Simulated scan of single mutants.
Amino acid sequence: MLKVKKLICSTIAAAAVFSAVAAPSTLISSNSSTPLVNSINAEASSALGTIEALQNVNIRTGPSTGYQKVGLLCGGKRVSYYDICGDWVSISPTGCRWVCLSYVRRV
């Protein structure tokens, strides 16, 4: 199913190219205060651009509310994005962290 999701998302991915920056304090795990950005910074060059959270927004393991909540993207924070699938944007180069587009804006 992950391959199918990637294929579908890849066909509708945004073509925007922006500079990408992710601050370590940007993503906070729901279980602790441990940042979740280590893997994001590793591949910043493959990012499509940067988004900014308009308010606190849940980070999920997939592109819908049916996926598990794994953290919080704090309002005002900027992170790189790697894929878009419908109303959801991936903030992880591996496709394992997603936020809803309704709560972010492209920078």
Score class of each variant (00 low, 15 high):
34 T>M: 08
86 G>M: 03
39 S>N: 13
21 V>K: 12
21 V>N: 11
65 T>K: 08
106 R>G: 11
49 G>C: 07
59 I>L: 01
95 G>Q: 00
92 S>K: 01
24 P>I: 06
16 A>S: 13
98 W>Y: 00
102 S>Y: 12
98 W>D: 01
34 T>Y: 08
39 S>P: 08
34 T>Q: 11
49 G>R: 06
44 A>L: 15
15 A>F: 12
9 C>H: 02
75 G>R: 00
11 T>V: 13
23 A>M: 11
94 T>M: 07
61 T>M: 00
48 L>A: 09
67 Y>V: 04
86 G>D: 05
55 Q>K: 15
80 S>I: 06
29 S>E: 12
28 I>V: 15
78 R>E: 10
96 C>P: 08
63 P>T: 05
66 G>C: 06
36 L>Q: 12
73 L>R: 03
5 K>F: 09
78 R>T: 13
79 V>Q: 01
4 V>A: 13
21 V>C: 06
53 A>S: 04
19 S>T: 15
19 S>I: 15
35 P>I: 06
70 V>S: 01
62 G>A: 00
83 D>Q: 14
90 S>P: 05
9 C>R: 04
59 I>T: 05
76 G>V: 09
14 A>T: 15
102 S>G: 10
53 A>R: 02
52 E>Y: 02
82 Y>Q: 06
11 T>N: 09
38 N>K: 12
60 R>V: 06
41 N>I: 15
61 T>D: 01
103 Y>T: 11
53 A>N: 03
11 T>A: 09
75 G>Q: 06
36 L>G: 04
43 E>R: 13
42 A>W: 10
20 A>F: 04
13 A>W: 07
88 W>M: 01
56 N>H: 11
86 G>Q: 05
74 C>S: 14
99 V>K: 00
33 S>W: 13
45 S>C: 08
90 S>E: 03
55 Q>S: 15
100 C>T: 14
106 R>Q: 14
15 A>V: 15
17 V>M: 10
106 R>L: 14
5 K>Y: 08
53 A>W: 01
51 I>H: 01
51 I>G: 03
28 I>L: 10
12 I>K: 03
103 Y>W: 10
81 Y>P: 10
63 P>Y: 00
80 S>K: 07
4 V>D: 14
32 S>P: 10
41 N>W: 08
54 L>F: 05
